[in-house]
């Protein structure tokens, strides 16, 4: 009896979480009046969240990433990156398919197949060396291709820069994440997710210094870089030229 109800309860809980987040996003966009930048309607809120994020990053994420970067030899770091990259190809392929790019999607799944076997569970990115290019796709990009508006810029602590649309896409991607549903044992799953976060943060370390030095206003610099970057990704590296 107990077993039969536990599943629906779990379902309900994540539904509730999604509802709360959706409501928060709605609330946010409703009370947005600060600033006068059309692409950043929530600037006041965002800047406050940015400060919180910077605090957490300085105290926790950055030191961890620096330690990892210094302690782990390059071949191991490369393998860790490849491993998560390989797992990621599944959702990249699905998103390419959802965007109607069937050939790219098929190539992503072929990459997954080759790297999981010949590349020894994804430790080596053999597929790239064979000329199967790695793509960058996520559900936020899929929503954009489907015609959804970006809904305004949003900065969230830990999550980092997003737009409302990309935040929604991020929720869906997190839900569909193979690392989340593919690893049964909770401790292993959490370690894997932790390691992935550190790996991602470590890969951003070189750009930290550049942003720190280049920006007159770090918040704006990161926002505008993020928005340019997303535009580029949505158009798969060939965005139409903007008017000057």
């Amino acid at each position: 009896m107990r077993n039969t109800i536990s599943a629906p309860i779990k379902e309900q809980r994540s539904e509730k979480l999604a509802a709360v987040l959706a409501f928060a996003a709605l609330l946010l966009s409703a009370c947005a009046t600060t600033g006068n930048n059309p692409k950043d309607p929530n600037e006041g809120f965002n800047r406050a969240m940015f400060e919180v994020h910077e605090g957490i990053d300085t105290v926790i994420a950055k030191p961890l990433a620096k330690g990892y970067d210094a302690a782990v030899p390059l071949p191991v770091k490369a393998s860790v990156g490849n491993l998560f990259g390989n797992v990621g190809d599944l959702l990249i392929g699905v998103n390419n398919g959802l965007q109607g790019k069937v050939d790219d999607g098929a190539s992503d799944l072929l990459r997954l197949l080759i790297n999981s076997t010949v590349g020894i569970f994804g430790l080596f990115d053999v597929a790239s060396e064979m000329g199967l290019e790695k793509h960058n796709e996520d559900f936020g990009q899929t929503l954009a291709v489907w015609g959804m508006d970006d809904g305004g810029y949003l900065f969230l602590p830990i999550v980092g820069p997003r737009t409302a649309r990309d935040g929604l896409g991020f929720l869906v991607d997190t839900y569909a994440d193979p690392v989340r549903w593919g690893i049964d044992r909770v401790s292993v799953r959490n370690s894997a997710m932790g390691l992935r976060m550190i790996d991602i943060r470590a890969s951003l370390l070189p750009s930290d210094r550049v942003v720190e030095e280049a920006a007159l206003d770090k918040y704006s610099y990161i926002r505008d870089a993020y928005l340019q970057r997303r535009r580029n990704l949505i158009y798969d590296g060939n965005p139409p030229k903007l008017e000057d």
Binding site: N37, A214, R223, D224, A225, R229, N232, L242
Partner: peptide
């Protein structure tokens, strides 16, 4: 995709 130049505009 990030222009190091126009990223300064704002």
């Amino acid at each position: 995709g990030i222009s190091l130049v126009t990223n300064y505009r704002d």
